[in-house]
Amino acid sequence: MYKKRNTNKQLIPNRVKQVKTYLIGLLSIIGIVSTYIGGHVLSAVEFLTLLAGVLLTFIIMYTFSVLSSIIIASTIIFGLSLFVVTYALLHQNVNQVQLITHQLLFATIFLSWWLIVALIYTEEENLIKLKAMLNQLRKIDPVSGVLTFNEFISEMFLVTKAIARRNEPASFIFIKIKTPLGKEPKTLLRIIGNTILDSIRRGYDIVGKTGNNTFVIMLQGTDTDKANIVINRILQKLEKYPKISGEELRKYMEIYTLPATENPETNEQIIRDHTQ
């Protein structure tokens, strides 16, 4: 019988997430309670050895990986068993119940803390990977609100093909900001990015931040003469921007226009050549 496939699958099923949360919660309770009991029951030497073991495992985990820490964790756990057996054999009048209790307590404390950190660490590693993927997929520059370099180039390819088909002109406007030490003025980039977006035909023209301090606008169906009208519009809007001296800002800006070609690769080279 045909079974309908679930197309609305979540990346991580809820049940898995819940199990992980409960597990960390349960381990935390076990860890706290057993450490507290251990602080009273275990001797100073036992407790310090435990502490050293936990720290060593964490250091291995941080320096190498969670998998490497499993090796040291199992060595400690099995080594402890061997030590207890040997100790019991060598000492005839040993209190075996006490010995086993101490070993169990030691192992519980050690394992619970190691598992908590290992679980959180694995989650953190996943998060870092997801963030890296998100950055790659990001289309909008978070500072200025315009397209990122990669997204601008891919949009430019589509626009160039469209204008070539329609046999229309197109032009680029380059806006560069010159700063002391060549640093990136985030506030100015945000203000200029917003102003450009307010000055162009959204959904028709495209704007991207192609370098630290460079914006590129691609205007469809517009030659360089008409592009100068857009430049004036941007500058007028910046003049009226609150808290800003537009006249002074102009001194730190370089604005010019260039015609776009009908070849996307040539256009990409133009953009790269004029990006700071």
């Binding site: 700063t179 002391p180 030490l181 100015l188 808290k243 800003i244 001296s245 002074e248 800002l249 001194k251 730190y252």
Partner: peptide, 12 residues
């Protein structure tokens, strides 16, 4: 120089 850059652009 850096202070002048910001002070020239931002009136506050």
């Amino acid at each position: 120089d850096i202070a002048d850059f910001w002070a020239n652009i931002f009136v506050n």
